[in-house]
Nucleic acid binder design. Sequence first.
DNA 1: CAATCTAGCTAGCCTGTCTAGTGACCACGA
DNA 2: TCGTGGTCACTAGACAGGCTAGCTAGATTG
Lengths: 171, 171
Amino acid sequence: MDNPPGSGASSTPYWYEVSDPTVGLLHALRRFRQADQRMRRRMSSDMDLNATDVEALRHIIAHHATGEAVTARGLATHLDISTASTAKLLNRLTESGHVQRRPHPDDRRSVIVTATEHAHAEIREWLTDMHRRMLEIAHSVPHESRQAVTDFLQSMADCLDPEAVDDTPDR
Amino acid sequence: MDNPPGSGASSTPYWYEVSDPTVGLLHALRRFRQADQRMRRRMSSDMDLNATDVEALRHIIAHHATGEAVTARGLATHLDISTASTAKLLNRLTESGHVQRRPHPDDRRSVIVTATEHAHAEIREWLTDMHRRMLEIAHSVPHESRQAVTDFLQSMADCLDPEAVDDTPDR
DNA sequence: CAATCTAGCTAGCCTGTCTAGTGACCACGA
DNA sequence: TCGTGGTCACTAGACAGGCTAGCTAGATTG
């Protein structure tokens, strides 16, 4: 069990040491990551949109909620895909009736993307309940540990992606 | 700010209420998710493998560390892709010298997949340092809050994906 | 006003998934 | 022991979603 068969890979493990008491923590973290991915997958197949399109829609709606305009370029940047791919994405979402393109009031090169009422409804259906439960879970964290949990997540985020810029108004 | 312009979307928000004190927690959670995704992306482009292939490799290596054999079917199930896609994936990884197929000792239909020393080295290079830093972060969580953090993550995982089966030995 | 930059678009390519169908092999009941 | 049905892995071919290259319209700057 502890010294695996197969090729002569190093005998000093670079995988976590199981004996460490904080490993349970990292294990839970991994479980969460996996659950998150599976949720996205379910959501995307349920809505008949691919994962990128769902994230785009989520982004658009989240920014709508704060009154910020979303341009095609903004979407490309957020999703980390090319503007060309974004054009295709917007074609898909427009055709499926999830978003609308409108002229930018100030810059006539630019487009503002807005979600249709139908898209709002669809996302809402998925998220309202989930958000409620997530809030409940957040509330159930003992008051004195809240900061610790937040710090932990923040540090982990910094660790995984040092130059992350937190542009999301999503709350 | 609170009542956005644009189409006549519902005026009762289904996005989080910003006033809630625990929202910071959920916000940190979202930041972590994003950081995680970006890390995967970087890793995959850095190793010249797509995200699925990296996850496959990680899975293989993690199971190797516990002495469990990984079959093609096991990979397909874990990655949630078809066996056909898995066959192609294994072709790619075999061709690039990351894995080897060996006959299953008991079932002659089946194949055991093992990572090459080269793959071990490559993954190790990426992960050792990161794991060390993650462990440090885990250690820096106040002792009395560790359980709270773990519980929080577990509950969130259950919330996002109720039927998750925790098959990973990855620690 | 000319030169240059930027936003978004189309065309065409490449990669990675999928479904359909195949052959080899295992397990079990008659 | 010998079908019969289920399972494992594979190939072929379709399709989706990303990319780069190259374009036009409009903004910006010397």
